[in-house]
């Protein structure tokens, strides 16, 4: 009878220990980043790999999310004869919540996995050991550029996602819900505040940091062989996704409570 309870207890304990190790790793990455030397070329390469190549997937998910959101808010608003709120609610929902969360989750799927797989493969093939023997700190050379690039790139992705998400709502608004194109845009801009957008960008930076740190963490402690790398990749994606949603709640509490 106590089997599942014991198992849950053990899983919780392991998860907490894991989060502790991850937090210590994050602190070491930040410290290494502040110390230098600075691998600028690596940062540029990672900005390309993390930011530029994530644009299509982040843009598309935002577009469809904005479109669906407009339909839902219209249907919900109709119950209170408040269909006219669609533009402003779509804009607020996208910029504060869905833009950053969707971008964060897509980047978790694309980037946490590829970072963990790449660094895990380097670990397994002794490339990380080789870095040390070549007087190069793997944290500075591998982790810092990826974490920095992701922290800078995800807010930009969120900004693009915000625009396309609002555009998705606008397309549905004028195509399916009978809004006037001009009025929809005016309503969007009028009710949107700078902090709605800025808070989402801050969230994006936090999510980018989480994704890259998690990918590096699981890559560097990857077990031996292809199986070890596979497990590290899966753990990185799942952990990054859960941490993003938890951090999103925490940041929303911090930014918007009361």
């Amino acid at each position: 009878m106590t089997g599942p309870l014991v198992a849950t207890g053990r899983a919780t304990r392991e998860a907490l220990a894991g989060i502790g190790a991850l937090a210590r790793f994050a602190a070491r990455v930040v410290a290494a980043g502040l110390r230098g030397p600075f691998h600028g070329v690596e940062v540029l390469r990672q900005l390309g790999a993390i930011g530029w190549q994530s644009l299509p997937v982040v843009g598309l998910t935002a577009l469809f999310t904005g479109a669906a959101l407009a339909l839902q808010i219209h249907a919900g608003g109709a119950r209170f004869n408040a269909e006219s709120v669609v533009p402003s609610i779509v804009a607020i929902g996208i910029t504060r919540e869905l833009g950053p969360v969707m971008a964060g989750l897509m980047v978790a799927a694309r980037v946490a996995s590829s970072i963990a797989a790449e660094i895990g493969t380097m670990k397994v093939t002794q490339q990380i050991d080789a870095l040390v023997t070549l007087s190069t700190d793997p944290l500075k050379y591998l982790a810092v550029p990826r974490v920095l690039a992701a922290t800078l790139a995800v807010p930009v992705l969120v900004a693009v996602g915000d625009s396309l998400g609002i555009m998705g709502g606008w397309l549905v608004g004028i195509g399916r819900l009978g809004f006037d194109a001009q009025t929809y845009l005016v309503n969007t801009v009028e009710f949107l505040e700078v902090w709605d957008i800025a808070s989402g960008l801050v969230k994006g930076a936090a999510f980018g940091f989480i994704v890259a740190v998690t990918g590096c963490f699981f890559g560097m402690r990857s077990g031996q062989g292809a199986q070890g790398v596979g497990r590290a990749t899966k753990a990185a994606v799942v952990t990054a996704a859960v941490l993003i949603l938890a951090a999103n709640y925490a940041l929303t509490e911090l930014f918007f409570r009361g």
Binding site: T121, M122, T125, Q126, Q127, A130, L134
Partner: peptide, 21 residues
């Protein structure tokens, strides 16, 4: 711990070569 001064004058051939991909 790894010793920076030692590693500056050190080289290693790894079993699988461990070249950076």
């Amino acid at each position: 711990r790894p010793r920076p001064a030692f590693l500056e004058r050190f080289g290693m051939l790894f079993q699988g070569a461990a070249l950076f991909d």
